[in-house]
Amino acid sequence: MRGFGATLGLYEPGRGFLYRTAPAPKAVASLACAVAVIAWRSPTTTAVALLLTFGVLIVGARLSPVRVLRMLLPAAPVLGILALYQGLAQDWLRAFVVVGGITACLLAARALTLTTATQDLLDGVVRLVRPFRRLGADPERFALALSIMLRSIPYLAGLFVDVRQAARARGLERNPRVVVTPLVLGAVAYAHRTGEALAARGLGEGDLDEDPPDDRTGP
């Protein structure tokens, strides 16, 4: 599963004013879109949100309208079923409000991740968590956990593909236990290896300022 990062919808270098905007305003705008769509369920809100997100992606990230539509492809089946249900069970204006709103929110979120480098996104999250430090939150560790998570998805996806092929070779592909057990055991083992490598780099052990009061004292 090489290059999984690209399909994961992360950063793609490009030009346009979205790329020059700091992550914080983009995140706020993306959140505002979700809040607006949930709070005011009206055709006008949905129409405005849809026009704005499409327009901003086309102008701000210099994408062609076709590329913007293609970004919606993975979510299309769910959106289609929902639109159909709403349209038949209630009315088509209602279907537009609900499905259009969700579409706008998906695009707004995609605009953020498309135009913000992963490291900047993580820095942004760290800044966001910083005020909660007093409540025991540790922004650096949080960001580290987030990046290890992202890093592990392609590994696990590759492992899953291997394991399924191995199961198929034994004619056991219909047995989910045979398919998933090696995946989960592999994930736990991978977590242990990564944990050791982190410890070796002095990462992920909490505050970097001082040595913790250690209760591992010898005899």
Binding site: G5, L10, T118, Q119, L144, S147, I148, L150, R151, Y155, Y190, R193, T194, E196, A197, L198, A199, A200, R201, G202, E205, L208, E210, D211, P212, D214, R216, T217, G218
Partner: peptide, 26 residues
């Protein structure tokens, strides 16, 4: 290493056999 673990780890770099378990960022 028992009482100054973090200080020690900062002055001792460790490289593993399999680089993929060591590299954590994309």
């Amino acid at each position: 290493t028992r009482t100054m673990g973090r200080t020690v780890r900062r002055s001792v770099g460790f490289v593993f056999t399999d680089p993929l378990s060591q590299l954590v960022m994309p």
